[in-house]
């Protein structure tokens, strides 16, 4: 045998080096999508005085870049405008707006950024930073990704502890009025993001330096 052949390990090393040096593969975003507002929903359900109630946030922006074979370029970014909350009770809505709960005046939005998406045995999982009321918590965001009559559909359900975010603090912290666990249900029917949206726009600007290659 010719011992001058490079070892497989070296080949791999060089290959990885080459891949990482190639910006189009490394930094490219997966295909980007935005939700179709009329068909998408961001809802939650909690318990109050022994009864389950559901609410929705009607006003939110989401941008999802995802392809199972382009995980490094996949990410999910959501901004929720909290005052669009509707829990089918004016009294409850106005209570939730107050300082003890979401404190809309100080924290008008909540954000969700999953910069990393991996594939677990159960399917895709985002490792996301969820920020509510100024408090950020890393959460695991398992979701399903289906194609339904030509549209991609993302569905997810996560359970949050409202006290992780100081929602319902102080005298409301115990569960005598409201339970701590809140189920959040995400249903996004997706359309391709318009070409003019963030990454494309950034890339299209002549001044955009390669270093600013879109991660978001």
């Amino acid at each position: 045998m010719n011992t001058r052949h490079p070892s497989p390990a070296l080949l791999l090393f060089v290959g990885v080096l080459g891949l990482s040096a190639c910006p189009t593969l490394y930094a490219a975003d997966a295909p980007a999508y935005v939700p179709v507002a009329a068909q998408s929903s961001l809802s939650f359900s909690g318990t109050q005085q022994g009864e389950r109630f559901t609410g929705v946030f009607r006003d939110f922006d989401a941008r999802i870049a995802y392809a199972p074979d382009q995980l490094p370029g996949s990410h999910i970014d959501v901004t929720i405008r909290l005052k669009s909350l509707d829990s089918k009770s004016q009294d409850r809505d106005s209570a939730l707006a107050g300082a003890d709960w979401f404190d809309f005046a100080k924290f008008p939005t909540a954000t969700f950024h999953a910069a990393t998406i991996r594939i677990s045995s159960a399917g895709p999982v985002g490792d996301a930073d969820l920020t509510i009321k100024g408090k950020t918590k890393r959460i695991s965001f398992p979701f399903t990704w289906k194609n339904d009559s030509g549209k991609n559909v993302l569905d997810a359900r996560v359970t949050l502890d409202r006290l992780d975010f100081g929602v319902g603090a102080g005298e409301w912290a115990d569960e005598s009025v409201a339970g701590r666990k809140v189920d959040v249900v995400v249903h996004l029917v997706l359309a391709s993001a318009p070409a003019a949206a963030a990454p494309a726009a950034t890339a299209g600007k002549p001044a955009a330096a390669p270093a600013a290659a879109p991660k978001h």
Binding site: Q49, G50, E51, F53, S87, K88, S89, R92
Partner: peptide, 25 residues
């Protein structure tokens, strides 16, 4: 009509007579 829970001494929850409805409230 206010969309509030109804509980009897923390023991039993009773159903709503109608859905939440601000005018009826």
């Amino acid at each position: 009509a206010a969309g509030f829970p109804l509980q009897w001494f923390g023991q039993v929850n009773l159903p709503a007579l109608v859905d939440a409805n601000p005018a009826l409230k």
